[in-house]
Simulated scan of single mutants.
Amino acid sequence: MSFDVARRKMVQEQIVARGISDRRVVEAMLKVPRHIFVQEAFAAQAYSDSSLPIGEKQTISQPYTVALMTELLGLTGTEKVLEIGTGSGYQTAILATLADRVFTAERIRPLALRARKCLDSLALFNVMLRINDGEGSPIGWEEEAPFDAIIVTAGAPAVPAVLTEQLAPNGRLVIPVGDEEEQRLLKIERQADGTFETAVSVGCRFVPLIGKQGW
């Protein structure tokens, strides 16, 4: 099966069939080639219904999870987005296809460099990537705040206040919160008056968020 055929099958069976209805998200999932973001040994499994190892004890998320988290952000194309945890760069590529600008931070240098190469190969030059590999590196990207949307691709024990503070009014934060074994996806929206509303989505399992705001 060709990658194009496998990608269309993935979107129809794993994304649309499970209730992802945002047309722009569906089109982005059809457009971005997931197989270039996985290790060559796993390329044949790139469109399977599962997460896959990408090295450095990290994973690329299940396609449905990527689509769901993206849909929860409600992107229209004008947003300035912050991503915590670049990883393979696949989620970054989906965001960059749907938003105006993406700021993404990764703590593992080899992953960040590989992700940058993949993003550049797709001409996704609206992505600013920072490597936070030093001890005590602050979470977020305070000097570029506020953000219209923030996505965290690692499980946290609680919602980091430093991230909600970096949300613009009416901005949305999507983050997995729970223990190190299992989390729930949360969507936190900053209201115009500065208060926050939280909605709980599905159960999930991510690698742990590392640092002062994580594990």
Rank of each mutant, 00 (worst) to 15 (best):
L129P: 04
Q91D: 01
G89N: 04
S121K: 06
V81Y: 03
P138L: 11
G89Q: 03
S88I: 01
T92I: 06
R130N: 09
F103V: 04
K80A: 10
I139Y: 00
S137W: 12
L129C: 12
T97W: 08
T86S: 13
L95H: 06
L119I: 07
K80Y: 04
A96Q: 09
S137L: 05
G77I: 04
N132H: 14
V102Y: 13
C118L: 02
G89C: 05
L119Y: 03
A115N: 03
G140D: 05
S121R: 08
V102L: 14
G134V: 07
S88Y: 00
I84A: 02
D133S: 07
T92L: 11
R101F: 12
D133R: 04
R107T: 00
L95N: 07
E83V: 01
L113I: 11
G136T: 02
G89M: 06
G89Y: 01
T86R: 13
N126G: 14
G136E: 06
L95T: 02
P110W: 01
E106L: 08
N126T: 09
L113C: 05
A115M: 09
E135Q: 13
A115L: 10
F125Q: 15
P110K: 04
A96T: 03
T78L: 14
D133T: 01
R101L: 15
E135C: 05
C118N: 14
V127H: 03
R107I: 02
E135N: 12
G134C: 11
E79F: 12
I108R: 01
L111H: 04
S137G: 07
I139W: 05
N132Y: 11
R107A: 05
T104H: 07
E135L: 15
A123F: 14
R109L: 13
G87T: 00
L113R: 10
R114F: 06
T78H: 13
T86Q: 01
A123S: 14
I139D: 03
A96E: 10
T86P: 03
G87E: 00
V102A: 12
I139E: 07
K80E: 12
V102P: 08
L95F: 11
Q91G: 03
A123W: 08
S88P: 01
V127Q: 07
L129V: 15
G87F: 00
T78N: 15
A105W: 02
L119P: 06
L98E: 10
D100T: 11
R109T: 08
L82W: 03
T76C: 09
L113F: 03
K117F: 11
R130V: 09
L124P: 09
L111D: 05
S121I: 00
N132V: 05
A123R: 14
I139C: 08
I108P: 00
L124K: 12
T76P: 02
T78C: 13
